[in-house]
Each structure stands twice: as structure tokens, then as C-alpha cells.
């Protein structure tokens, strides 16, 4: 007795209709069409980009905080004088700083520290001792504040080669730039969301137009707009969610593969997610589904009013 391995096509169709289409409303719309993969692809690509925008935004936020936090209570005194006078002026500056209210500590950077500061530009083993480099003094406030202008005048009087820099000049633009970058990241996410909504609306419109005959038949037999719209909305929402989930995972993988903080340097070191931040990209697929739901629903009702 031979074993029949394939189902007759009629039975297959029946099973597909009865089992695989859980929602009756969903089954009234033909399952195929270019809008299916277009919606998933758009949602996936947009979410992939959104993950990077999110990473950029979070990194910019951290950078802005770090810069602000690290620099807002520090200042630098730079002493540029003849080699014979540097040590004397350094002592004089340290003495002035020690007696200035609001200054917690002050210390002159050693040759090794200066070499390390210059290493990114001049490479290792720079003979700083043989170069006419200015001496740097790192000043830390105690939080109560100090009279910067008064200190500047006193330093000029005690050490003519000393230049006081409280970092205000370049700290503010940096903090502002980081803030703007963070804002730009959020703006990019919003734009990505809007673009996705627009693309899904176009795909939904195309699908509705392509299924004008189906809609006509459904209206003829008494289907309400909400019934017809539900079939399209459910389908597009699920497609967008699935595409966005794939995009989010891809994006997270991409972020994870970025160079680590130690291997690279500067700004790129922070571009990634830290700790619970890795959960944030997981919010994007439901958000994409929500965007698809709203966009398709609006498009469906608008198109239905036009069609019949």
C-alpha cells in the first residue's frame, strides 16, 4: 500500500484558508503583492537607521554630560616664559592659587603628562624637556566659585608669562555642539518615523488601489469600512513590526560591532549602548507597528471613501 505524501490542492487551499488565516477579516485581502515585502523592507531599513540615530543621540548626551561635568570645575594656567624663568613663575602662580578663595587644588603637570597630551599629534617619545613648551597648571575649583577676573589680574602681576584659561571659551561651544548633536539624533529618529509612515501610507494606498475590486465586492455584500480597513491595517502592522524587529536586531548588531572605546578614540568611543540602554532599540519595533497601524488606518479610511 502506497503512502500518499501530498495533499490534493483543494484540501491544501481549504487548510490554508481555515487554519493559517486566523482572522476572517484578514483573509479577504489577497495575501501576495509587492507591497508585502516593500512594507517589511521599509520598516526594517528605517528601524536599522533609527537604531544608529538612537545610539548617536545617547552618545551625544553622554558626551555633553561628560564634557560639562569634567570641565566646568577645572581651569588651566599656561606659563610661557624664557626657560630660566619658568620654574620661578610656576612657583609664583602656585602660590597665588593656593591663597585664592574658591580654588580647591592646583598642580603643575609633569613632563610625562605633557608628553601624553601631545602624543596624538607628535607621536610617542617626544623629548618635551628639550622643546620650548609652556608649563601647564591644572586648577580645580572647590565648588563655591572664584573671582576669575581678579585671579587673572593677580597672576598677570605675579607671573607675566601666565595665561589663565577657565575653559569657558571652548567648553560652551563643545557642550552646545554635543547638545545639538543629541537633538539632531532625536530629530533623525522622528524623521525616520515620519518617513516610515509616509512609505507605509504609499504602500497601503497602492495595496488598496490594487484591491479595488475586492473592496467593491466586500462593500456589495455589506462589509463596513472598519471591517475592510481592519484587514489591511492588521496586515501592514504585522509586516511593519516584523520588518522593524529584523531592522532593530541588525542595527543592534551593527552598533555592537563598532570599535570599542579602547581601540579607537575621541568621539567614536562613546557611540554605542551601555547597560540598560541596550533595551532601548527594542522599543522601536512596537513603535514601528504603532506608526504602521496609524498610517494604514488613516490611509485605508481615506482611500475607502474615495473608492466607493
Amino acid at each position: 500500500m502506497s503512502l500518499q505524501l501530498t495533499l490534493p490542492p483543494q484540501i491544501t487551499r481549504l487548510l490554508q484558508h481555515r487554519i493559517f488565516h486566523a482572522s476572517p477579516a484578514d483573509s479577504v485581502v489577497p495575501p501576495s503583492g509587492h507591497t508585502a515585502w516593500l512594507t517589511s523592507f521599509t520598516a526594517g531599513a528605517m528601524t536599522f537607521l533609527a537604531v544608529f540615530a538612537l545610539a548617536l543621540s545617547l552618545a551625544s548626551g553622554r558626551l555633553a554630560e561628560r564634557w560639562a561635568g569634567a570641565l566646568d570645575r577645572t581651569a588651566t594656567v599656561r606659563i610661557a616664559a624664557a626657560s630660566g624663568q619658568i620654574d620661578a613663575q610656576t612657583k609664583a602662580v602656585l602660590a597665588v592659587l593656593a591663597t585664592t578663595p574658591g580654588i580647591a587644588s592646583a598642580r603643575a603637570l609633569g613632563d610625562d603628562e605633557q608628553r601624553k597630551l601631545l602624543e596624538p599629534w607628535f607621536g610617542p617619545n617626544l623629548p618635551v624637556e628639550s622643546l620650548p613648551l609652556p608649563r601647564l597648571i591644572e586648577v580645580t575649583e572647590d565648588g563655591s566659585g572664584y573671582d576669575a577676573e581678579g585671579l587673572r589680574q593677580r597672576l598677570t602681576a605675579e607671573a607675566p608669562g601666565a595665561v589663565f584659561d577657565d575653559h569657558t571659551r571652548w567648553r560652551k561651544p563643545l557642550a552646545t555642539a554635543a547638545s545639538r548633536l543629541r537633538l539632531l539624533g532625536w530629530l533623525a529618529i522622528a524623521l525616520i518615523g515620519l518617513t516610515m509612515a509616509a512609505m507605509i501610507t504609499l504602500a497601503a494606498n497602492a495595496s488598496l488601489a490594487a484591491n479595488a475590486q475586492v473592496i467593491g465586492v466586500l462593500r456589495l455584500v455589506g462589509a463596513r469600512d472598519s471591517y475592510i480597513a481592519r484587514a489591511f491595517v492588521r496586515r501592514f502592522t504585522l509586516r511593519a513590526f516584523a520588518g522593524a524587529a529584523a531592522g532593530a536586531l541588525g542595527g543592534m548588531l551593527g552598533v555592537a560591532l563598532l570599535p570599542s572605546a579602547d581601540a579607537a578614540g575621541a568621539f567614536m568611543t562613546g557611540l554605542g549602548f551601555h547597560g540598560a540602554g541596550w533595551l532601548l532599540p527594542l522599543v522601536l519595533p512596537p513603535l514601528a507597528g504603532l506608526v504602521a497601524f496609524a498610517a494604514t488606518r488613516a490611509a485605508a479610511f481615506r482611500k475607502l471613501r474615495e473608492l466607493h
Binding site: 462593500r219 455584500v221 463596513r224 472598519s226
Partner: peptide, 10 residues
């Protein structure tokens, strides 16, 4: 309304 039309067609 459009819903009324649908219900009427039933």
C-alpha cells in the same frame, strides 16, 4: 452614512 449603507446592503 457609509456604515448605514453597509448595514442596508446586508
Amino acid at each position: 452614512t457609509r456604515d448605514d449603507v453597509a448595514m442596508t446592503r446586508r
